[in-house]
Structures are given as C-alpha cells and as structure tokens.
Write a protein that binds this DNA or RNA. Structure first.
Lengths: 209, 209
DNA sequence: CACATTAGTGAACACTTGTACACATCAGAG
DNA sequence: CTCTGATGTGTACAAGTGTTCACTAATGTG
C-alpha cells in the first residue's frame, strides 16, 4: 500500500548493499551485521533481503565484486596519470590515497575481509590483490623497468608492493577522515616504504636466493 | 549448588578469555561474539561475565595484553636462537611461523583486531607492533648491522619488516593448520620479502628522500 | 571467630533476531 | 487481455540476546 511500486530492477538490491557498506563505514564490522540491521538501514522490510541474498555472507561476496570495479577504476586512473617514471611511486600512492578516501567504506570492508570470518570473501579479496599485483608487474615490464629481474622475482616485488599498500590502508582508515596532516604522513611513509622495496629490487641479484 | 566452590582466583576470568579465543580459533570473528555465547563456551552462567568484564570489547582489550606476552616470548626466543647473521632472516621467520602455529587463535585474534571494530583494541595492537619494530631496530644496532642508516631510516625499515611479517600472518592463517607444504611456501616467500627489504636498506642512501 | 568482599548461581525482563507464510503488485510473454 | 514469475509488504513465532536482581557460598582480613 504505502509504497509498493516496483522501481528499476535491482534497486532494492543496491540499497541493501549500500546499507551494509554504510554500516561498515560507520565503524561496524561486517561480520557482526545482521539481516534485520541491514534491511532497517536500507529502509526495507526484512523479508525483502531473501529476494536478493541468501545470507549476509552472500551479500559480502557480491560486495567484493563491486570492490573489484572500484579497484579497476583506480588502476585505470593511475595508468593514465603517471607520466614521469621518477615520480611514479609518489603519484601512484597519491592516487591510491585519494581513492581510499573517496571510497572509505569500500576499503574498510576490504581491510576487514582480509581477516574476516567468511573464507569465501577472504579468498576473493586475496584474489583481487593477486590480480592487482600481476597487472602491476605487466606495467613495469611494459615501461621497461626492472628488466634485470626474472619473472618470479618481479612477481615477488609486486606482491610485496601491493601488501605494503594494503597495510597502509589500515593506517589510513584508523585516522580521522579529514586529518589532512596525518593523511599526508601516511602518504609519505608509504611512499618511502615503496622506495625501499624498489631500491631492494634494483639491487637484487637473483642468484642470491 | 552444583559446583559453587571458588577455585583459584581469576580462574573464571581465564576461562572466559580462553573461551573467546577458542571461538575465534574456530573461525568466528571476535566482533561477532556475544556475552552469552562466550559464557556458554566457557561453561559459566552469563551473569558471571560481568564480574570480570564490562563488555566483550573489554575482554578483547585484556586479550591484547596477553597477546603482548606471547609476542615477547617469541622475541626472546628469536634473540636466543639467532646466531649467525647470514641466517638471521630465515631463522627469525621460522621462529615466527612456529609461534604463529602454536598460538593460532591468538594470532588470528591479532589479525582480526587490526581492522576490528574496537578502536581501542586496534590501537593497542598497533602499539604492540610499534614496540616490536623498535626492539628490532635496537637489535640491529647492537649487532652492528645497517650502521649506515640514520635512526629514522632504520625505524622505517624495521616498521616495514614488521608489517610484512604481519601480513604474512594472514596468509598463514588462511591455510590449513597442518598443510606443511603450504606453510613452507609462506615461510620461503616471507623470507624473500624480508631479504628484498634488507637489500633495499643496504643500498639506501638517505639523501635520496 | 566474625564479617565484609568477592565470585559464583538461577530466574526474569524486555528486546532483537532469523526465518516462514500468505498476500499484493508490477512487468513482460503468450 | 490473461497468466506467470519476480519483487515487494505485513504478520507471526520460536529462539537467542544483554542486563538486572536477589541469593549463596567461599575467602581473606581484622
């Protein structure tokens, strides 16, 4: 009666996902969310939930898919904006931080999922990170950087880079959204971490391992 | 009536903490634990919980303290067993993996807490990691390693080392407890990560930043 | 020994939770 | 048009939740 008309298909589905994300953004942990809580936040009756998801974990899985899109957008922007090789690290970190700020809830969900209780979500996020690392390796190859490294060693390096950035994510999420000074600190520190890694990669002789 | 006699003081408290840890070890996320659930697992009546903790988060805080002890034990063993400098990394990683396996629930709790919903727990764990990094820096100074680095750069390096190991923790926890092959893989990969970092530190010239 | 304190118990409370069921409305296929 | 399936709503219920209360047994201190 009140407001029954069916809008665009999948609208309620989106509202539910957005609601879960909003709760996570408010500081809640995804693992502690309940169906009723999510539907309440979405302004939908609890029963509607089952029309789109079998459980909260299922919703989580679909959120990871959307997270993948966010990450790909970020990657695209990084590729388009990083021009000179000497500022490569600094600019990439800047873009990462900017995206993390713009999609705080998404990235918080990602950080939570890494040690979350749903094995499936965990594996999906891990897989996204692997993909990211392999794309980074491709880019470095294409830019003719780190050419002295074997494929395996380049993968190793890129994996470490992605992990380092991912960890910085937890730093970023633990500080206030608009504490520009601290944000800049994280950006600087992350940049130095990556420089350290790349100096290591540049001086890596594969025979040593 | 049934079994009222008071045993050693703090016994129920320990049972409650052990129960929470056991649930985490079974794959549950700490943020999703409830008071009744924990007391049930501990074999104690719900009311008893309030004699020792004000909330589940409070219990979490006390758990971090115990986690600190576990970490210090690990550090002591590492200091005692690492003899030759050339095997320093490999042996340290080995000791870390061994402890992580022996105290799986504790370390799982730590990994969860890093992106957990209790700001306080998060900050405590972060503080433990900082302490760990600073102790590592002390050790490296004492061993006359990395003497060309400024204090700030040494801190940077040690911080990155600790983060890298912490991230490996999530790898370790995501694989089966007794999949020896995969465990060895994680150990090898982590070792290489750290070697990469230290090669970077060895070739780091502080003027570049 | 007496006594205040501490640490345990069970019953009760007002809510919240997940899920099932029957029903209403809409979109599109025949 | 009618029929069908998808998507929405309200009601209902049993089970689980956090917390309070009054009560009891053991402990250590004076």
């Amino acid at each position: 009666m009140t407001d029954k008309q069916r809008r665009k298909p999948g609208e309620t589905r989106d509202k539910l996902m957005a609601a879960a994300l909003a709760l996570v953004g408010k500081g809640r942990h995804f693992a502690s969310l309940g169906i009723r809580e999510v539907t309440r936040q979405a302004g939908v009756v609890p029963t509607s939930f089952y029309r789109h998801f079998r459980s909260v974990d299922d919703l989580g899985l679909q959120l990871v898919d959307e997270l993948g899109l966010v990450l790909r957008r970020m990657m695209r922007e990084a590729r388009a904006n990083v021009l000179q090789a000497d500022k490569l690290i600094e600019e990439s970190v800047g873009i990462f931080v900017a995206h993390a700020q713009a999609n705080r809830s998404f990235f918080r969900f990602m950080a939570q999922g890494l040690a979350g209780e749903s094995r499936a979500v965990q594996e999906e996020i891990r897989s996204e990170m692997r993909f990211f690392a392999s794309e980074l390796a491709n880019d470095l190859r294409r830019l003719r950087l780190m050419e002295h490294l074997s494929d395996a060693d380049l993968d190793l390096t890129c994996d470490l880079v992605v992990r380092t950035v991912a960890f910085s994510l937890t730093d970023l999420l633990s500080i206030s959204e608009d504490d520009d000074y601290q944000i800049a600190q994280v950006r600087k520190r992350t940049t130095r971490f990556l420089q350290l890694v790349f100096v290591g990669a540049a001086n890596w002789n594969s025979g040593s391992a």
